[in-house]
Design a protein around this nucleic acid. Structure first.
Length: 382
DNA sequence: AAATCTCTCAACCGCCGCTGT
DNA sequence: GACAGCGGCGGTTGAGAGATT
């Protein structure tokens, strides 16, 4: 009769029992570890040496820290991963009490998802290309809309294509379209709720915006601005603007969304300020806080301790991302580093799908790192 | 309450690099 | 230089727990 798969070659596999753990601990306390190949036999264990080593290294070692990862640990993992890639053992060497296996698991089950949700590629630590492409295509497409779809610039000079907050709204709506396998009926009834929620958090529309919005209404007879003003006073401007958004979505955005239907996800990325209002992108940029970690003394220390090894890794380009270590090592941020251009004044919190407790500050900084806000003029418009 | 789905993480597997012969 | 043995690493798996339907 064949032995079960967990006992081939007379060696046990699978979960360790408390008795086995005790045997291993007793032996290593007495004789120390090493010579893993012969250790199990000497310790009276029916396990392979590899299994013993892993059990000791990942679970039984006395200096192992248990419990949830702290905020600082999580930030350290993200930073180290951005420099080292999947060098879990090297990352673990910088996190006392944590094992490479534990960090790897935490990365795969928590951090990776969080970064993806924020539209950041967890491999490259850059904004996902599909998101940037989508933003670019959206902007181009919207810029080429018929004139009645364009917002007037708040400054009154030139024209702007879309309110930046609305751009975020559209991106999220697209995400919803993708996730729900877009159905126009569903959109009509449900999808706009995102936009409406957004709009309710917006400051009141300017007079010029309201005029334009009213003028944009499809299938409506042209009305004079005076008539328009009277009409506006009797209607909800937010609903009117939603109509514009709805029309844009139906006629121009959804076809674009279908182009991306093969993609998995897009970021659900809202940034609210302390009053609970969605921030304009320039405000978002100014509110970055987490990137200061890159120049903190604590992380300078970590990086200094591993400078030579890491630099070799990067220089040899052995799987490590191409990264300017000198910018990380500088305690005084240099102007050439994208990271160093961040400041850290106000507090901003990502919501929508995440909680404050999740401490998602990475995304806002990424927006600035890649100059997403550069496409905005002083009015915060594209 | 039961069934199903999702998530977590300990453990395994295969590969690689180092060292000794 | 070729080979074998070993330790270490990173990717993957699957059982169990918890959440959801």
């Amino acid at each position: 009769m064949a032995k079960s798969s967990s006992e081939k070659n007379g060696l046990k596999k699978g979960p360790w029992t408390p008795e086995e753990d005790q045997k291993l601990i007793d032996y290593i306390q007495k004789h120390g570890h090493g010579k893993w190949r012969t250790l199990p036999k000497n310790a009276g264990l029916k396990r392979c040496g590899k299994s013993c080593r892993l059990r000791w290294a990942n679970y039984l070692r006395p200096d192992i820290k248990r419990g949830r990862f702290s905020f600082e640990e999580e930030e350290a993992i993200i930073q180290l991963h951005s420099v080292l890639g999947n060098k879990w053992s090297t990352i673990a060497a910088n996190l006392p009490g944590r094992t490479d296996n534990e960090i790897k698991n935490y990365w795969n089950t928590h951090i990776k998802k969080k970064l993806l949700k924020m539209g950041i590629d967890p491999v490259t630590h850059t904004p996902r290309l599909d998101v940037l492409q989508l933003a670019s295509i959206l902007n181009t497409s919207l810029y080429n809309l018929p004139p009645q779809f364009n917002y007037p610039s708040l400054s009154g000079i030139g024209r702007s294509v879309i309110n930046p907050s609305h751009m975020l709204s559209l991106l999220t709506t697209l995400l919803s379209c993708q996730n729900r396998n877009y159905n126009p009926d569903v959109l009509n009834n449900n999808q706009l709720s995102d936009s409406d929620t957004l709009l309710q958090n917006q400051p009141q529309c300017s007079q010029m915006q309201l005029d334009s919005i009213q003028a944009f209404q499809p299938n409506q007879p042209h009305v004079s601005l005076q008539e328009n003003h009277i009409a506006k006073s009797n209607s909800n401007p937010l609903n009117m603007e939603s109509q514009v958004m709805k029309t844009k979505l139906e006629n121009h955005i959804i076809p674009i969304a279908t182009l991306f239907s093969h993609q998995n996800t897009l970021p659900n990325l809202w940034l609210y300020n302390s009053e609970g209002h969605i921030s304009d992108l320039p405000t978002m940029a100014q509110s970055s806080s987490a990137m200061q970690r890159f120049s903190s003394p604590k992380f300078n220390s970590i990086y200094n301790n591993n400078l030579l090894e890491n630099q070799n890794l990067c220089n040899n380009n052995e799987g490590a991302p191409n990264f300017n270590l000198s910018s990380l090592l500088s305690s005084t941020p240099s102007s050439s580093s994208p990271i160093s251009t961040l400041n850290s004044s106000s507090s901003a919190t990502f919501v929508n799908g995440t909680t404050e407790d999740e401490r998602d500050t990475y995304g806002s900084n990424m927006l600035l790192m890649y100059n997403i806000s550069n496409g905005l003029n002083d009015s915060g418009l594209l």
